[in-house]
């Protein structure tokens, strides 16, 4: 017998991502997908964020890595619900991986779920996991030429965080040039300069997050 299908071959991930988005919506949760190279400072930034926001927002973190639970262990020490997903070689989180762990969270009680993606500036940009927004983290040591080399993530992200600005004096990173390139790729994107070591820009970043959660919850 003939079975009519009419399904996009590469649509599998998007369908599951849409389901995840609905789950977040039903529970009034703002979901953020943080993307950046290995060593950009994603986990440290999250630790600082938790320090500032855990009193005012109910948050949970989903960590994505190939192997180890090192990042989840760091987050767990801050007494926030955290789940580690190990991809065992996969270079990005996909919607199915995230959907599998959502039942482990007490979604009804959460305001904010941050998903720290696998360290990678390329592949995670291609795959929606049901998030409300993506954040692109670029550190000073990676070089000011990276936005044009990895345009997709800067186009996809609602906010770009330029991290480790305390090291600027020791590098040839041209801040104006990097910001100009990012803005060319994505007119209107929010750019926030941070240093986790010196705790600068963290308040600005947390304000952005709080506003995002508020907007989501006010519908």
């Amino acid at each position: 017998m003939e079975v009519s299908v009419m399904e996009d071959i590469l649509g599998g991930n998007d369908k599951i991502a849409a389901e995840n988005a609905q789950i977040f919506k039903n529970n009034n949760i703002f979901a953020l997908n943080i993307i950046g190279s290995p060593g950009a400072g994603k986990t440290t930034l999250l630790e600082k964020t938790i320090g500032k926001l855990k009193k005012s927002l109910n948050m949970a973190i989903i960590e994505g890595d190939l192997f180890t639970s090192k990042d989840a262990d760091r987050i767990a020490s801050h007494e926030i619900p955290v789940i580690q997903i190990n991809t065992s070689g996969g270079c990005h989180l996909d919607a199915a991986m995230v959907q599998k762990v959502l039942p482990q969270l007490n979604l009804a009680e959460l305001d904010l779920v941050i998903i720290e993606n696998v360290g990678n500036l390329v592949c995670p940009a291609e795959f929606n996991i049901g998030e409300d927004s993506k954040a692109a983290v670029l550190s000073i040591t990676e070089g000011d030429d990276k936005p044009l080399k990895y345009p997709l993530i800067f186009k996809e992200a609602a906010v770009s965080i330029l991290n480790k600005v305390d090291i600027l004096p020791f590098t040839n990173f041209d801040m104006a040039s990097a910001k100009n390139d990012i803005t060319c790729l994505h007119p209107g994107i929010e750019i926030i300069e941070t240093s986790c070591q010196q705790e600068s820009g963290i308040d600005e970043w947390c304000k952005w997050l709080e506003n995002a959660v508020k907007s989501k919850q006010n519908g």
Binding site: L10, N13, D14, G89, G90, C91, H92, D94, V122, C123, E126, F127
Partner: peptide, 11 residues
């Protein structure tokens, strides 16, 4: 998709 970078959702 993308097991060891066959990446890309839509080309």
């Amino acid at each position: 998709m993308c097991s060891t970078c066959g990446c890309s959702t839509h080309g």
